[in-house]
Design a protein around this nucleic acid. Structure first.
Length: 259
DNA sequence: ATGGTAGGTTTCCTA
């Protein structure tokens, strides 16, 4: 079994105790993190290695930052989109066994029509080109992380209130669909038609009222279709004291990684 | 109804 998970931790420093507990309980083969908000020199390398994981990371001060933990060897890391000059640390691609893992922290976009929204759409276009290129080198590809896109209305607690706004707007959803059209499945939707969220606003009791969105996703390439077993959201970490606003999403595959 | 909460190192910015 090959278990791969993603979690926007919203500060690795603050969430490290939750992360350690979750890893010990769930034992993922690969764990992709976003919003580490940690400069590389401050990365808690010893704590992660003590859990029995290899890790690659690319971070910056205050914002963004991604990391991939793996029980297996990590090969051929790429720390940024190759054709997009971006000071923001939002992408990490690495190979585990014969699976190419692409950890993404897709820009939030702030507000439809804003500069940040334009940046988000350009970033997504660059991601599309990168993934297309990676598919020429790797058959098994997983793209996982915080997409900041709710793909369909079922992924939104109140679609009418959210209609047209950032995270659900048509251009963002088209960019998501364009990724699928390269030959990917949305693991959660391949597994269930349930309405389940992966993020709840800290404000106004978003989690308690289940006013959330499904914006954290695991996409797998068609070459992995026969291997796919399950996908689920684990909301247990969202119930803890001082939680991240996101909670882990997990996918399981019938794949053996040699080392 | 443009609020609210959280994290960073800030006196606001981002989400």
């Amino acid at each position: 079994m090959f278990k791969i998970a993603t979690w926007n931790v919203n500060s690795l420093k603050v969430r490290l105790p939750h992360l350690i507990d979750w890893v010990n309980e769930n034992n993922p083969d690969v764990f992709a993190l976003q919003e580490t908000k940690t400069q590389d020199e401050n990365f808690p390398l010893e704590a992660i290695e003590a859990l029995g994981y290899n890790v690659v990371f690319t971070g910056q001060k205050t914002f963004n930052g991604v990391a991939v933990l793996s029980r297996h060897a990590l090969k051929d890391p790429i720390m940024a989109l190759p054709d997009f000059d971006d000071p923001q640390k939002r992408l990490l691609a690495v190979t585990v066994g014969d699976v190419r893992v692409i950890d993404v922290y897709i820009p939030n976009g702030s507000e439809v029509g804003s500069d940040k929204y334009e940046y988000k759409l350009k970033w997504l276009a660059s991601l599309h080109a990168f993934v297309k290129q990676q598919l020429t080198e790797y058959e098994r590809v997983v793209i996982l992380g915080d997409y900041n896109i709710a793909p369909e209305d079922i992924d939104v607690h109140d679609p009418k209130a959210w209609e047209g706004s950032v995270l659900v707007s048509a251009p963002e959803r088209k960019a998501f669909d364009d990724l699928l059209d390269l030959g990917f499945h949305d693991a959660f939707r391949a597994f269930t038609e349930e309405q389940v969220f992966s993020w709840w606003d800290y404000r106004q009791g978003g989690f308690a009222r289940n006013k959330g969105l499904r914006i954290d996703h695991i996409l797998f390439s068609k070459a992995m279709t026969e291997d796919f077993q399950a996908c689920y959201v684990d909301d247990a970490p969202r119930k803890l004291e001082r939680p991240s606003d996101h909670t882990p999403v997990v996918a399981e595959f019938d794949i053996n990684i040699d080392r």
